[in-house]
C-alpha cells in the first residue's frame, strides 16, 4: 500500500482509562496509529488487552479519555450525535463474531436492510448482487435459522459490503466458525475489501489470519507495536 494515499484512520495520542473502586485503571496510553485508505490492518493480542475497546475508539463508537481520532480527515467526536450516526452509517460497516442477523428477515432482507434504512431505491438488486458474490444466490429467501454458521456470516459480510463502506471493522469474524469455513470467510473479506478499496481493520487473536493483512499490530500491556512480517 502506498504511503502517499490519504489516511483512512488517524489516531493521535489515544488513551483510555476506567475508574474503579481501586482507582483509575489505564487500558492504554498515548497510542498512535495511522491507517491508509484501502489498507488492511490486523490488531492482535491476548484476551483482555483491550482490542475491542481500541476498535470501538477507532470506529468512534466510544470516546477516548484523551487523544483524537479522525476518519478520512473528519473528526467524528466533534460532531453531533445525529450527524455522527449518519456519517457512520454511510462510511463504516461492521462484521461481528456472532453474525447478528435479524431472525425474522430472510437472507435477502437482512442484506438489503441498511440500504432500506438509508432509503436506497435499488436496495434489492444491490443485496442480490452481494449475496450472489458470497455464493448464496440459491438461498436468498432462507431465514437465518435455516442457514449454517458459515452461511450466516456470509450474509453478514454481504450486508457489510452492500453500503459500499470506506471502512470495515471486523471483530473476530471467524471466532464462531471452524477453520475451513473461517478461511473461506476471510478469503471473502480480503477479496471484497480489495475490490471495493475499503480499509479493513481486523481484530483477532489468530496470528495466521492476521498475517494475511498488509500490516499487523500487537496490543500488549497498553502498548501497540507493529509486527514486522
Amino acid at each position: 500500500m502506498q504511503l502517499t494515499t490519504p489516511l483512512a484512520i488517524d489516531a493521535q495520542r489515544l488513551s483510555k482509562s476506567f475508574s474503579s473502586t481501586d482507582g483509575e485503571i489505564s487500558l492504554f496510553k498515548d497510542l498512535n496509529l495511522q491507517i491508509h485508505k484501502g489498507e488492511s490492518v490486523a490488531i492482535i493480542g491476548p484476551s483482555g488487552t483491550g482490542k475491542s475497546t481500541l476498535l470501538s475508539l477507532l470506529a468512534c463508537l466510544d470516546t477516548p479519555t484523551d487523544g483524537t481520532v479522525s476518519l478520512a480527515g473528519v473528526d467524528l467526536n466533534s460532531m453531533q450525535q445525529q450527524q455522527k450516526a449518519q456519517w457512520r452509517s454511510k462510511n463504516i460497516s461492521f462484521v461481528f463474531q456472532s453474525f447478528h442477523l435479524l431472525p425474522e428477515l430472510s437472507a435477502l432482507e437482512n442484506t438489503q436492510l441498511p440500504l432500506d434504512i438509508q432509503g436506497h431505491a435499488d436496495s434489492e438488486q444491490q443485496a442480490k448482487h452481494w449475496l450472489e458474490a458470497v455464493g448464496l444466490a440459491p438461498r436468498i429467501s432462507h431465514f437465518p435459522a435455516q442457514l449454517s454458521g458459515g452461511e450466516q456470516q456470509r450474509v453478514a459480510i454481504a450486508r457489510a459490503f452492500v453500503t459500499a463502506p470506506s471502512l470495515l471493522f471486523a471483530d473476530e469474524p471467524t471466532g464462531n466458525l471452524d477453520t475451513k469455513t473461517g478461511d473461506n470467510i476471510i478469503e471473502l473479506l480480503f477479496d471484497f475489501s480489495a475490490k471495493t478499496q475499503a480499509t479493513l481493520i481486523l481484530i483477532t487473536h489468530d496470528v495466521h489470519l492476521a498475517s494475511r493483512c498488509d500490516r499487523m499490530f500487537n496490543l500488549l500491556e497498553g502498548q501497540l507495536t507493529e509486527v514486522i512480517k
Partner: peptide, 16 residues
C-alpha cells in the same frame, strides 16, 4: 438491546 444496537449500527436513527 443487541437487536437495537445492530439496527443503530446499520444506520437506523433512535427516532426510527
Amino acid at each position: 438491546r443487541t437487536r437495537s444496537a445492530l439496527l443503530l449500527s446499520l444506520g437506523m436513527t433512535p427516532r426510527q
